[in-house]
Amino acid sequence: MNLTISGHHVEVTPAIREYVHTKLERIRRHFDQVIDITVTLTVDKLSEKEKRHKADIDLHISGKDIHVESLAHDLYAAIDTLIDKLDRQVIKHKDKVQGHDRDAIKHIPDPASA
């Protein structure tokens, strides 16, 4: 798994890098076929009172690319919201992938006719 964390108008400190890394462990716990992850952290300075922190992630897994973004007034809150959204999408994708291998009802033999 390749993990790339970059910042736009924000310095990515080791503390932020470690926080993102520990939060992404939850994604790997649900789905282990992750190929590539790119996290971009951005600070938009509209005014001094209105700093908007944006976190977006591109997740490349086998068969699909997932893009999620989140906005908050705090960078850590944006990361938390981002991971929650990503976790829901990964679980949804995992259910779709694992749910289609069941047999259709019309192909199951009827025990009453046997």
Rank of each mutant, 00 (worst) to 15 (best):
I37L: 10
P14C: 08
Y19T: 02
H30P: 03
L71P: 00
E69T: 08
R52F: 00
R17S: 13
L41H: 03
L75Y: 02
E69K: 08
T42Q: 12
E50S: 13
I35P: 02
D36L: 10
D56F: 05
T4K: 15
H67N: 09
T13S: 13
T4S: 14
H8Y: 10
D65E: 13
E11A: 15
H67M: 04
P14W: 09
K64W: 02
E50I: 07
T40H: 07
R28I: 00
H21R: 13
H53T: 04
I79W: 00
T42K: 12
V12W: 02
D32S: 12
T42E: 13
I57E: 01
T22I: 07
Y76D: 11
A77L: 07
D80L: 13
T38F: 06
I61L: 08
K85M: 07
T13H: 05
M1L: 10
H21D: 13
D56R: 05
G63Y: 09
L3N: 06
D56Y: 07
E69F: 08
K54T: 09
A78E: 04
I83P: 02
I35V: 11
S70P: 01
D74Y: 00
V68Q: 04
H67F: 08
K64C: 06
V12S: 04
S47N: 14
E11L: 13
A78G: 06
E48R: 10
A15M: 03
I37T: 12
I16H: 05
L59I: 09
H9I: 09
L41A: 02
N2R: 14
G7V: 02
G63P: 11
P14K: 12
V12N: 05
A77T: 11
E69A: 08
K54F: 02
A15V: 06
V68P: 01
S62N: 14
Y19F: 09
H8P: 03
A55M: 04
G63T: 10
T38L: 08
L75N: 05
